[in-house]
Nucleic acid binder design. Structure first.
Lengths: 147, 147
DNA sequence: ATTTTACTTGACCTTTACGTAAGGAATATG
DNA sequence: CATATTCCTTACGTAAAGGTCAAGTAAAAT
């Protein structure tokens, strides 16, 4: 199971050969590689996050390099705590679907910044929650001891 | 809307008068007082957290002092981030239903301790998540600048 | 006595991110 | 070619914590 990777490789230039002849994969293989289920991939397509992959004669989906990158991108964002709905809203501004990684705009930065402050807020909330629980614990101990 | 209060008042002794003649209340009034809906109260009863209150002739629930304390107890625990399911499991050991606050056992302490470490864990996770996002942000900035 | 609230139960709805099964077609393997 | 595996779509199920009707009483206010 590969670690989801958000950004494209920058190890080599546009036309390097070691990526050009990557084969397309089917859904089962792809799912296995990324440690998710086929249902998940179809679901992302269903809600419009993945865009439509090519199909073989019989209807079998085949995912090319870009599709795979896109999926990894989604998984990475999810790993970072961004919900699928947020990604959808995100896609309105910054078009994941076109998936031109070269055109990554400052919008993404903005979104990440926003997410950082959300996380900060969550941490703060949990901290005060922790204090409350501790304090509460002390009160109970006191009562037990004074009985 | 009163602040939910977990522990019984310790301001006066067992038989002080200022609590003895508290009247029973109906569900709507109680809900309003605690800032929740009637549905919530019925729901807690439904899942066995609240125990069955007395009823008037027509079936109207009336909540006495103990019922109210119990509900406040539940709300307090919820506020502390303990899920209803956890409370149900909790009730197997430490019987909320009997609601003898005098018999608060060290079990509750144990549970709170466990919850503290859970919260600690969540905070740790969020912190590293934050770092990842920041790091990610930096990577994107770099790419943008080197183009 | 009558209107107006408040209360009752029951049952379906909501959100998120898929799980799971049914029934059938296509691809891979022996 | 027969079989095994993978794939397809459709569609209902799940958990948490209630929200939201609806139809029918009861209690309170006038």
């Amino acid at each position: 199971m590969e670690t989801p990777q958000l950004l494209p490789d920058i190890c080599c230039k546009e036309n390097c050969m070691h990526k050009k002849n990557q084969k397309s994969v089917q859904i089962g293989e792809l799912a296995k590689r990324l440690g998710i289920t086929t249902r998940t991939i179809r679901y992302y397509e269903e809600i419009g996050l993945m865009g439509l992959p090519e199909r073989l004669g019989g209807g079998t989906r085949t995912f090319n390099k870009d599709d795979i990158l896109r999926l990894k991108f989604i998984l990475k964002l999810k790993e970072l705590g961004i919900s699928l709905k947020e990604m959808q809203e995100l896609a309105e501004h910054f078009d994941i679907h076109q998936q031109e990684f070269d055109t990554i705009t400052p919008k993404l930065i903005e979104i990440l910044d926003l997410h950082i402050s959300k996380v900060d807020e969550k941490i703060a909330n949990l901290s005060s929650l922790r204090n409350e629980i501790v304090e509460y614990r002390v009160r109970i101990m006191d009562i037990l001891n004074n009985k």
